[in-house]
């Protein structure tokens, strides 16, 4: 069995520390900010720009960890530290995991 999409402990702590309403808004912000980062990764890959690629992956990893999105953070971290990949397969997998994560986050944020 794979790890949970969202680590409930991290998410609960975040809500306890920052307030549930604020976290719901923060999830909305993440929903707006992540797609441009995925697009940045694709464009950096096409341009062969390793540093731009790493930075975008780093931002995604950082935000995923904040919400306790462990699996998404793990995928982003592999891309951050792995250098410019040969193909877009890793980004595709990251984008799919982001969709799954977002559904789970929205359900947790506004039950």
């Amino acid at each position: 069995m794979s790890a949970a999409v969202i680590d409930p402990h991290t998410f609960d702590e975040l809500q306890a520390n920052a307030g549930a309403d604020f976290v719901a808004e923060l999830v909305d912000t993440f929903a707006e900010e992540a797609p441009p980062l995925l697009a940045e990764m694709r464009s950096a890959l096409a341009a062969g720009a390793a540093e731009r690629f790493r930075r975008a992956a780093h931002s995604l990893k950082s935000n995923s960890s904040t919400f306790g999105a462990t699996r998404l953070a793990g995928l982003a971290r592999e891309l951050e530290l792995g250098g410019l990949p040969a193909g877009a397969g890793g980004i595709d997998a990251l984008a799919r995991e982001f969709e799954t994560t977002l559904v789970a986050l929205k359900a947790l944020a506004r039950p």
Binding site: A18, F22, E33, S62, N63, T66
Partner: peptide, 15 residues
């Protein structure tokens, strides 16, 4: 520069 990080940090400090 990351909006999620920025908002969260500001919120924590305001609290």
């Amino acid at each position: 520069d990351n909006k999620v990080n920025r908002l969260l940090l500001c919120r924590s400090l305001e609290l």
